[in-house]
Design a binder for these strands. Structure first.
Length: 879
RNA sequence: GCCUGGGUGGCGGAACCGGUAGACGCAAGGGACUUAAAAUCCCUUGGGGCUAGUCCUCGUGCGGGUUCGAGCCCCGCCCCAGGCACCA
């Protein structure tokens, strides 16, 4: 600490021993926060709440830079709001079910539960060492029965309301491993484990009827999510994919029933020249039966069934199909249309049947050309007519109807309505809306997930578990089977149960577990009362805290997790548990953390520590060969361009890591990792540390100046002005824009100013002004580098606890300057600057500008046309 | 192909309502301190030019336009990233 006698020495170099050591400081304050329950949140109706939430992590082993960035951003906002007087809820927990636990268990011969809980313990310690302001008493893990029992409870409620149903659905199936594969376990159509080709298999699976809410979710996307990034809203809208059109019945030529199609282009119905059915369409075998096509059709359908889904949706997938041997009649044109089945028709969209209009749909056009089918133009360009025979692509623009009997000459937009009316009036079709969104398949043939609370009884069929029998506990004594097949099916103690309806002892439990997205669709509500055992949550707590005011996470969850959460919240509302529809008022999607990749010709990708040297001259530590520097990419283990937060924490401390994450780029953009930048952040903190300690003796016992700037002059006035301007800038940067990088810049500028205004101590009130500036630096840094801020706050003579210190307000009157710099332009080009008193009127500023020698040079001999004055900013002389 | 973002010094990035382009940091160079180094503190740093200034000129992906004035607005392109993509 500074000694009295040091005060009259120069500021520079007198306290060389004052060095910043983050480790003990961080330990000390983390203990302080914990012991004093500084971040414990309690409902308090007299205070305005602020619920800040970051997407909870999957406990994969240890935290990575993506977590560090995400949680640092959230922590700054939480701490800032807390200093602003809000009652802040800032919880943390674990998205603890999922496949990696099973994989690790098989690979390391441990149990998924053990692996998961050990990871949680390790990662919790890591998060604590970052100094995040979580209320750890609210921690939850979704794999615990006391969590998922309420999920099972809600499942039963949804089942009662018809929100849950079972249907046949395809899964990826590996014959060799005898197991179901998730999409991410299928690599280019091959099983990730054995490398054999993946097929598909039909299983009866559970679904949530999210499509019931498609319209509602879509509508609110626009109206009620103003605090969401437009990008995310658009992605959700596309995902829901509402299409407005019509259903039309096409009678079969020789039978007395019809094929129903969905189309968005009923205006082109007269141009429909053939029909396409999905290979899975029930009419395909029926129509081909007994025809010459029967064998070929059966072979085609069989081949499509075996084909991998990933392949079928591949980019340059060749359109192919076969004639099924039957014809239908176009109800509008009367044309006899051959019926085909083709790979591109999907059974689960619309009706699984497509009326094909090759002249006005590119896909139909290609198919027709390939199989020599007829083309009839029904929409002409407004100015010239199309010749079907000469077309090289479909005409999909607007135009005028032709070859459409009573509708000829009508604009196609009008014809849409007119034809829809005609269809409805004649009972051959109706207006219809389709969504791209499918129901949410939640069944997973996996062990490490929440059991679906259903029982299969030979007598009663599928029966829900009784509410009082919940939870259906996932047995932890299961042995994992090689290949990943769920061990539940082999576990007699789990499988065997009695029927809740008839009591039969022959009943079997459902062995499917729920998709982990189910757990993450309501955890934010559970946080409000995590220890509540009478229901999913205490509605009073939820009424107080929800909705989440600010949600922060990666853009990779922009669609599924967020859409499912919005859906679940609607379900909870319908069940009567919550009063709102939208769980997240504001959303911030932060960018990825990136780093350049490094590759050695013999050793492939290299970890950063496996290359030595700098710049483009790096060599491989294993073989000394040259290292090729690749482009910036998202940090990933497979590319080895990763930085382990644990190492950084060890080397620099949490505050430096936090500072760098915030300073390097604004949160929504990608962050390019740069070790020298981390050094820079560390250097700045050292500078702040020194700045404070070197001046401590000067300001100890002095109260920070809080008065009017009236009496201040020179350096005092300037430093005071800069101090308040910094408060203003940092507040708006954090509050309105989450631009922490510019907030940090502003604080850096203030620190630079303190160094530059050494003479302030000679002025009257100098010490008080200096103290105010120094305190401001510390208090503004508090949400960003909380440990150092606490330490310096105490050193400056305050009681511990900057976390709850009030955020400073800026004084408008302190921002004013005595003089203004007015820029003078001639014809828009900068020519001179004027320094004038702040109260100088417009006329005299203009006069000054015209008399300025620099300006005169450029207006001499020219006609003065106009003089524009922007108050306090500039004069533009137009000649 | 469609929908979003984005393109600014050697680099990360600033520029808030159309008004001084390049804040802040990194890197680089120079100086001070030191026996020396590290650390620290100070200075310089977009390109070009000359008469060396309180100077001129070019410059925010490219080409046009609106305006007294455009990185920012409008029209037409190019490139990069992300998302969707046989959805009838």
């Amino acid at each position: 600490m500074a000694q009295e006698g040091n005060s009259n020495r120069g500021l520079k170099g007198s306290f060389m021993n004052e060095h910043y050591h983050p480790k003990p400081i961080e330990r000390r304050w983390q203990d302080y926060w914990k012991n004093n329950k500084i971040f414990e949140a309690r409902e308090d109706p007299s205070r305005e709440k602020y619920y800040l939430l970051e997407m909870f992590p999957y406990p994969s082993g240890k935290i990575h830079m993506g977590h560090v960035r995400n949680y640092t951003i959230g922590d700054v906002v939480a701490r800032y709001k807390s200093m602003r007087g809000f009652n802040v809820l800032h919880p943390m927990g674990w998205d603890a079910f999922g496949m990696p636990a099973e994989n690790a268990a098989i690979a390391n011969n441990t149990h998924p539960a053990r692996w998961t809980y050990e990871n949680i313990d390790f990662m919790r310690r890591q998060l604590k060492s970052m100094g995040f302001s979580y209320d750890w008493d609210r921690e939850l893990a979704t794999c615990r029965p006391e969590y998922y029992r309420w999920e099972q409870w809600l499942f039963l409620k949804m089942y009662e309301r018809g929100m849950v149903y079972r249907k046949e659905s395809e899964v990826n199936w590996c014959e060799t491993c005898q197991t179901v594969l998730a999409n991410e376990q299928v690599e280019q159509g091959l099983c990730w484990r054995c490398g054999k080709e993946v097929g598909s298999k039909k299983l009866k699976q559970w679904f949530f009827k999210i499509t019931d809410y498609a319209d509602d979710l879509l509508e609110h996307s626009d109206k009620l999510l103003p605090g969401w990034p437009e990008k995310v809203v658009t992605m959700q809208k596309n995902w829901i994919g509402k299409s407005i059109g019509a259903r039309i019945l096409f009678p079969l030529a020789d039978r007395d029933f019809s094929i129903e199609v969905f189309t968005t282009r009923q205006d082109t119905v007269f141009g429909a020249t053939f029909m396409v059915l999905a290979p899975e369409h029930p009419l395909v075998p029926e129509l081909s039966r007994g025809t010459a096509q029967e064998g070929e059709v059966a072979r085609f359908v069989e081949r499509m069934a075996r084909q991998d889904k990933a392949l079928r949706t591949a980019e340059d997938y060749e359109k192919e199909g076969v004639f099924v041997g039957a014809y239908c009649i176009n109800p509008m044109s009367g044309r006899r249309m051959p019926v085909y089945t083709a790979n591109f028709a999907l059974m689960d969209y619309g009706t699984g049947a497509v009326m094909s209009v090759p002249t006005h749909d590119q896909r139909d056009f290609e198919f027709a050309k390939k199989y020599g089918l007829d083309l009839v133009v029904v929409i002409d360009r407004p100015d010239d007519s199309l010749d079907a025979a000469a077309m090289t692509e479909a005409y999909t623009e607007d135009g005028v109807l032709v070859n459409s009997a009573p509708f000829d000459g009508m604009g196609n937009r009008d014809a849409m309505e007119a034809i829809a009316d005609h269809l409805e009036k004649n009972g051959i079709g109706s207006r219809s809306v389709q969504f791209r969104l499918r129901d949410w398949g939640i069944s997973r043939q996996r062990y490490w997930g929440a059991p679906i609370p259903m029982v299969h009884c030979p007598a009663c069929g599928v029966v829900p578990v009784r509410e009082e029998d919940l939870p259906v506990v996932l047995p932890e004594d299961a042995d994992l089977l090689p290949g990943g097949k769920s061990p539940l099916t082999a576990l007699e103690s789990f499988m065997k149960t009695s029927c809740p309806a008839c009591g039969s002892e022959d009943a079997r439990r459902e062995t499917d577990t729920m998709d982990t997205f189910v757990e993450s669709s309501w955890y934010f509500e559970r946080y409000c009362s995590p220890h509540y055992h009478q229901g999913m949550f205490d509605t009073r707590a939820v009424d107080y805290w929800m909705p989440v005011d600010q949600y922060i996470g990666g853009v990779e969850h922009a669609i599924l997790h967020l859409l499912y959460s919005r859906y679940f919240t609607r379900v909870l509302k319908d069940v009567g548990l919550v009063k709102f529809k939208e769980p997240f008022t504001r959303l911030l999607t932060q960018g990825m953390v990136c780093k350049e990749t490094m590759k050695c010709a013999t050793h492939g990708f290299l970890f950063p520590e496996e290359a030595q040297g700098s710049g483009n001259e790096r060599t491989c530590v294993k073989c000394g060969g040259p290292v090729e520097i690749g482009r910036m990419e998202k940090m990933s283990k497979s590319k080895k361009n990763v930085v382990d937060p644990a190492r950084l924490l060890e080397q620099y401390g949490a505050d430096t890591v936090r500072l760098f994450c915030l300073f390097a780029s604004p949160p929504e953009r990608d962050l390019e990792w740069n070790e020298q930048g981390v050094d820079g952040a560390s250097r700045f903190l050292n500078r702040v540390w020194r700045m404070t300690h070197q001046r401590l003796a000067e300001v100890s016992g002095v109260d920070a100046y809080e008065g009017s700037p009236e009496a201040l002059k020179g350096d005092s006035r300037e430093l005071y002005r800069k101090t308040h301007d910094t408060i203003r800038r940092v507040s708006t940067d954090i509050e309105d824009r989450f631009h922490f990088n510019t907030a940090v810049s502003a604080i850096m500028e203030l620190v630079n100013e303190i160094y530059a205004r050494e003479n302030v101590l000679k002025a009257s009130r100098g010490r008080e002004i200096l103290k105010k500036a120094m305190e401001t630096v510390v208090v503004l840094l508090a949400p960003i580098v909380p440990h150092m801020a606490e330490e310096l706050w105490e050193a400056l003579g305050h009681e511990p606890g900057i976390a709850h210190a009030p955020w400073p307000e800026f004084r408008q009157d302190a921002l004013a300057t005595r003089t203004l710099t007015i820029v003078v332009q001639v014809n828009g080009k900068l020519r001179s600057r004027l320094t004038v008193d702040a109260d100088t009127d417009e006329e005299s500023i203009k006069d000054h500008a015209l008399e300025d020698p620099q300006v005169k040079r450029f207006i001499e001999g020219k006609t003065l046309r106009k003089v524009i004055y922007v108050p306090g900013k500039l004069v533009n002389v137009v000649v």
